[in-house]
Amino acid sequence: MSEHEVTLTINGESVTRSVEARTLLVHFIREDLSLTGTHIGCDTTSCGACTVLVCGKPVKSCTMFAVQADGAEVETIESVAVGGALHPLQEGFWEKHGLQCGYCTPGMIMTAKNFLANNPNPTEDEIRRGISGNLCRCTGYNKIVEAIQYAAEKIQADAGGE
């Protein structure tokens, strides 16, 4: 069983840790780095609760080894609010009641963040396809879609106001 020194950037900060090869990225984030905003839902690569951005792309952190992220930039939900101000997505989930139990929310927001970066003005159908790798068992998704639409409008309005 091999042990590896891993250096990666997590939410803008460089960290170096020694990890067992079999350590999953989600366990590394939650247990070694104590960032517990990233959730473990199904443990079967189905639900997307563990979604984080690796080099900007949303992936399921339960289906990647921490050692594979050596040299990568990783972003978790803890990076989203800047200086205590909610991100438009977080504000959207608040305003539009995009969560009930909240378990899927960190993964939903990380997926939506990348999605809106690539598609700032999406249709409802595109949003539904975009979040189709993230499961929610409470909301029936309608409120999540509205939250993402809210964020898309807010981000565009903010950009237009500059």
């Binding site: 979604t51 992936v59 399921k60 997926t111």
Partner: peptide, 9 residues
Amino acid sequence: IADPLVRNM
């Protein structure tokens, strides 16, 4: 294939 997150890996 699978879902958009899986397709990123």
